[in-house]
Simulated scan of single mutants.
Amino acid sequence: MLRTPVDGTRLRILAWLGEPGTAEHGLTADDVAAGLGVPHPVALTHLRLLTSLGLLCTGRSGDRLRYRRDEIRIAEVAQLFEKGW
């Protein structure tokens, strides 16, 4: 699921959310849409999928929903792949 679509959009979102500054504040769907040059519904679809996989968590900042990486879950998934899952 992370590698679909082929262009690696979800992996780019995860990498972007791991960058200093972004990691602390998170991103909104509007941020992702503008940063990747995709329509808002496309950005939201990617963010929701990553959230449903447990790789992102959400929180509110005012009236805005912000997405952040769930570092604990990402470490668990990475460990599964290292073990040859």
Rank of each mutant, 00 (worst) to 15 (best):
D31W: 08
L56Y: 02
R69M: 03
G26F: 01
G54F: 05
L50A: 03
V32E: 00
A29E: 09
V38K: 11
D63I: 09
L53W: 10
D70R: 07
R64V: 12
P39G: 09
L27V: 14
D31A: 14
P39Q: 11
S61D: 15
T28S: 15
T58A: 09
L27T: 01
R60A: 15
D30P: 00
L53A: 11
L56S: 00
V32K: 01
D70N: 13
A33H: 11
L27C: 12
R60V: 12
L44K: 12
L49M: 08
T28E: 03
G26Y: 02
D30W: 05
I72T: 14
R68K: 14
P41I: 05
I72K: 10
D70G: 04
L47Y: 02
G26C: 00
L50Q: 01
L27E: 06
G26R: 01
L55D: 04
H46I: 00
R66V: 14
A43F: 09
H40Y: 15
Y67R: 04
R64K: 14
L56P: 01
D31M: 11
C57Y: 07
L65Y: 05
T28W: 07
A34V: 09
L44S: 13
A34H: 13
V42Y: 02
L36F: 15
D30G: 14
A43D: 09
G35T: 09
G62Y: 10
P41V: 03
P39W: 04
I74L: 12
L50M: 06
R64A: 15
R60C: 06
G35Q: 15
L49G: 02
V38E: 06
T51G: 07
I74Q: 09
G37Y: 06
T28D: 07
T51E: 13
A29F: 03
G54R: 06
S61P: 00
T45C: 11
L53H: 06
G37M: 08
L65P: 02
V42Q: 10
I74D: 03
R64M: 09
R64W: 08
S61C: 10
R68Y: 10
L55E: 03
S52N: 11
D63V: 12
G35I: 05
I72V: 15
L65I: 15
S52W: 04
S52T: 11
S61T: 14
A33C: 11
D70T: 00
G59W: 13
L27W: 00
L53K: 04
D63T: 14
G35E: 13
R64S: 13
I74E: 08
I74R: 02
G59Y: 15
L49W: 02
S52A: 07
G54K: 06
G26W: 00
R73M: 13
V42T: 11
T58I: 13
C57M: 11
R66M: 07
L44H: 10
L49D: 10
L47T: 00
L55V: 05
L36G: 10
T58K: 08
T28H: 05
R64I: 07
L36M: 13
V38L: 12
H40P: 10
E71Q: 08
A43I: 06
D31L: 07
P39L: 11
L55S: 04
H40C: 04
D70W: 00
R73P: 01
